[in-house]
Design a binder for these strands. Structure first.
Length: 283
DNA sequence: TCCTCCCTGTTC
DNA sequence: GAACAGGGAGGA
């Protein structure tokens, strides 16, 4: 399930395929894939991809009208894609047959005029596409309240964000506190920090907050270097799996022995999510 | 602030 | 054939 490192990997691997390419047409196979506030899919026609980046777990295509559309097509559009659990963006040859889980197909033209397609495949249909003007984006509550990027965050700004009484694990999953962390990296970072995921966020000392932020950065950085974790469906834009999942210390290892001390790892449910931790190493 | 729902494939 | 996976919206 794509979290920050996986989305970063998708953005990096996809960008060379779409940079300066123009949307010619699009086909929506499942209407609920569009975010309710999105502009219609057709508004992409004539838009060129000038940049592709990640913000939290969101993929952000920055668009500008292609030369022949300047003055007629809107300026300042972006397309945000949230892959959620099972979303994938695949580059395909023109006229590729749609698959069972294809939700959207974009027909594109490269700078040399050759055609190709982008497929948005999403088995569990939780993924969303949001085509937005600047104004629509700022009106989107999730975007407006999205927390800071963990890799750009410093302890002085992290500590006050953990003032709530909720379990620390729940706070890490809250995208308005810190952006891009999901269930896997929350559990792994808490294990690496030796912090019990059930502890109230506000009970962490400033030192512990600093350790936690350091471990979050370390784990995300290593995961990005490993091109993410491939659990079940996740692949990058070239269809390649990541390999960070081979390094998991706790995620998916409930009832197994802790790699550090041998204690049986406990399972709990926090914020509605499966949580695994070591009762001996995490205090 | 917590719970339920959305959705489908995989595993038990 | 039920349990489970889970991010975020929306309601209690």
């Amino acid at each position: 399930m794509p979290e920050l490192p996986e989305v970063e990997t998708v953005a990096r691997s996809l960008f060379p395929h779409v940079h300066n390419c123009v949307f010619e047409s699009a086909k929506l196979l499942r209407p609920s894939t569009m975010h309710p506030a999105s502009l219609p899919l057709d508004s992409l026609v004539g838009q060129k991809v000038v940049d592709l980046r990640r913000r939290g777990k969101l993929l952000l295509f920055e668009l500008y009208p292609a030369e022949e559309f300047i003055g007629t097509a809107p300026d300042g559009l972006s397309m945000i894609v949230h892959l959620r659990m099972t979303g994938r963006i695949l580059t395909c040859e023109a006229n590729t047959e749609i698959g069972r889980h294809t939700r959207c197909v974009w027909n594109m033209r490269k700078p040399d005029s050759s055609p190709f397609q982008l497929f948005f495949d999403d088995t569990r249909t939780f993924g969303k596409i949001f085509i937005a003007t600047e104004k629509l984006l700022t009106g989107w509550n999730f975007w407006r309240t999205l927390g800071p990027e963990p890799l750009e965050l410093d302890p002085e700004n992290f500590i006050p964000r953990l003032s709530g009484k909720r379990p620390i694990k729940t706070s890490l999953l809250d995208q308005s506190i810190i952006a891009g962390i999901g269930n896997i990296y929350a559990d792994e970072a808490l294990y690496a920090s030796g912090i019990d995921p059930r502890r109230p966020s506000s009970s962490l000392t400033p030192d512990e907050c600093g350790v936690l932020l350091g471990e979050i950065k370390k784990i995300l950085t290593v995961a990005i270097a490993n091109k993410g974790s491939s659990i079940r469906d996740y692949r990058d834009a070239d269809g390649k799996a990541g390999k960070f999942q081979e390094s998991f210390a706790v995620y998916g290892r409930g009832d197994k022995p802790c790699r550090r001390c041998g204690t049986v790892l406990l399972k709990a449910r926090l914020g509605g999510r499966a949580t695994v931790f070591c009762p001996h190493c995490q205090k």
